[in-house]
Design a binder for these strands. Structure first.
Lengths: 254, 254
DNA sequence: CGTGACATTGACCAACTTCAAGGTGCGTGG
DNA sequence: CCACGCACCTTGAAGTTGGTCAATGTCACG
């Protein structure tokens, strides 16, 4: 149980990104690299809105969330992070962070200092490519998220969320069908733009339909096909078919 | 009327970004610069999902929208663009575009070829800074948009949208209180994740309350304070105060 | 064993969508 | 220049989804 509960801890994901960073760092300055590793705990912040941009961080283990704060002090989670992800790329505008990064569990990060970033951008085509790629990819996933937020039903949102998580873990050579949710229901609800009760209800509904099995933070996906259908077609709530049939009947009668 | 109807046409916005691009381009290769200018018309696409990444475009005049396409063919508008904006920064991941850019009116763009982008990233600290800044800024505005989509009421969404547009035009030395909407109601609804009818109703409501004046594409903001209040506090629909009073009364009675 | 944080469940209601019908403005072709 | 058609926009009525409120349940930790 303990191994599953923190599957991403102490796991070092050798993504292209990290490889590139590391090899570049190794060749340029191997001693600095070690200094820049740091460990954080649940609820710790890596940086907060308005903090000066120190550089880019790569998440080595654990997980984190980023959120922005509205004028009236409300927080909104914009993304969850897993090992291999880059943290802090929001800081290039005015060398100030617009988001806060907070850890969801014990985690470690590796800092690539701003000066190093600058150097690498000049000297390493690989690094340049990797950084721009990472930012482009984030832009793309933001767009997908916006689409989801604005046009998906609650069930579709949750289904997408679970499938995305599954992909995250698969890509990191962990089980994509059984994993721990390192975030609370409140976090999920906030991220997906719905009420916490609705998250709970959708989980319950999926579970009842044998699509998932969920007990607090522990989640298993039992039926990927159903989840996928849920995202693409609108068969989530079975009422849809019924109601569209009803409409046809009504039309036929009038 | 005609001058107002296309305020951004033939207008060259000398933003930091464009300055930097242009000066760099001038110094490197002045002849290519002229070649790379191109004019498009309403409904033309600059590039589509899956197209090969040719480079970064700077919008010189006109306006455009970007949208992504979901698996089931539905489109979702992710952003509107105005003179000085960079187009195509979604293409660094795999040198392929994940979005389509389509013009809303006659517009012209200037291309910075991929090879030039690469060169400039190495040689020009200004360009590097400008590009990363632009991407970071886009990330920040995406986050704000997600927050808006997930937690704002319809009225708040429209209020934000209008205030954002107002800022866009002000920054370009155009009137921030009277401008043309170059997008259709359908586009607005799609962008804000609401039904076109709701957009219409909110416009009608704002107009009735003397907050805006809107006739088809022509829009005037009459009361910025009201719009701002709408975004921050929840005074949009006046029912809120009443209902919270009711709650207090109910609580007092029980 | 008690406390607090987190999660679930049910009942009710409001905001928003959907459906349907009609209005407005613009361009094109007669 | 008018009239037709089309695209776009508006408005009202009815129906749903999902939010809010309130109560209860469960787990972890001291």
């Amino acid at each position: 149980m303990k191994t599953i509960s923190q599957p991403q801890n102490d796991y070092y994901n050798a993504t292209v990104l990290l490889d590139s960073c590391m090899s570049s760092l190794n060749s340029s300055n191997i001693s600095k690299q070690r200094d820049s590793h740091r460990v954080f705990h649940r609820r710790d912040s890596l940086f907060s809105v308005g903090d000066h941009f120190e550089g880019i961080y790569v998440l080595r283990s654990g997980s984190a969330k980023s959120f922005i704060t509205s004028r009236d002090g409300e927080e909104h989670i914009t993304k969850f992070y897993y090992p291999g992800d880059m943290l802090g790329i929001d800081g290039f505008d005015g060398y100030m962070h617009t988001q806060t990064i907070r850890f969801l569990e014990t985690s470690s990060v590796c800092l690539i200092k701003e000066s190093q970033v600058s150097n690498l951008m000049q000297t390493s085509a690989d690094f340049r490519k990797t950084l721009l790629q990472s930012m482009s990819r984030t832009l793309a996933s933001d767009s997908a998220m916006m689409m989801c937020l604005s046009s998906c039903s609650s069930e579709q949102k949750v289904a997408r969320f679970l499938l995305d998580l599954s992909t995250v873990f698969s890509e990191r050579n962990l089980s994509g069908s059984e994993f721990m949710l390192s975030m609370t229901r409140t976090d999920i609800a906030n991220y997906l733009g719905m009420a916490i009760e609705t998250v709970s209800r959708v989980f319950a509904s999926f579970q009842q339909r044998n699509i998932i099995s969920v007990k607090l933070r522990h989640l298993s996906i039992l039926d990927f096909t159903a989840l996928n259908n849920c995202v693409t077609i609108e068969i989530c709530s079975q009422t849809v078919e019924k109601s569209s049939n009803l409409k046809k009947i009504n039309q036929a009668m009038n």
